[in-house]
Amino acid sequence: MDAIGFFFDNLLINPMLNIIVMLYSLLFSNFGLAIIVFTIIVRIVTLPLHVRQIKQMRAMSEMQPRMKQIQEIKDPGERSRAMQSMWREAGVNPLGCLGPLVIQMLVWVALFRVLIKSLGTNPDDLVGLAQRLYSWNPFSDVSIPLNPDFLWLDLAAPDPTNVVLPVLVGASTWLQQKMTMTPSADPRQAQTNKMMLWMMPIMLGFITLTFPSGLAVYWTVSNVAGVLIQYFITGDLGPLFTKDAPQAQPVLQAASEEESKENDSDGDGTGGPVRKNRRRSRRDGPERARRKPGRSRNRGPKPR
């Protein structure tokens, strides 16, 4: 825990605190503007990661038909190798999409602490703040104490209206998720995506009721920036106007139909061979390999 505390203090909270205090000084002693500009800076710094994430998601989407084919490979080793090979060829790292998310969460957690540390209203808080500000920070002396007022908000306290910021956070999170949702080949996955599309905004909106409104400002601005970045990279707002599992279903359907056509030897259009394959695939598994010779699966009772 000490290591985590050290990491957060020295690599995240203190630098962030000093940057925000500096921005506060430069932006007319307005903490709200400081948070907004800080959010934009974070978005700019993480832009390469974000762009990479979008590209990878697109590539993953385009790989869906091939992924479906690989799913039919029975041997796990071969299947994994095929999957790896596909990712390598496409230049996709499935863990790559984690980067922006992790950074986002770290910044969020750190900002939470920064708000508590910087906008405290009693002497203890200010003593703590003094120890976190770098002595060479030329803005630290003239900025203290920081004014937490921004529009109708006290940035250190929850939104007094209990409505505006929760709705903004929820709506912008929904928008951002809708724009970036990965199409899925797996219906269960698609269902999960659909659930998350609604659950996350509702939950974030709900916890905004109890969190400092500065965090809600950060979250809203960050989401809006994310949507704009997405728009400028992909050039369309398509995902916003499609149903819940964007692109995935048509692609999969097309892939299935293609497969069906290829395998439909009797020409009845029912995809019979695919079903045949499925039956065979069950028999071809390791279970079959271990089956005793001469015994079929539908044999009668075990010999005693």
Binding site: M60, Q71, P76, R79, L95, Q189, T192, M196, G285
Partner: peptide, 18 residues
């Protein structure tokens, strides 16, 4: 590894992130 669940799935699933 018996019996097998349908595989492969996307390696990082939204549910994990969620």
């Amino acid at each position: 590894n018996r019996p097998r669940a349908p595989f492969p799935r996307p390696p990082i699933r939204a549910v994990h992130l969620a």
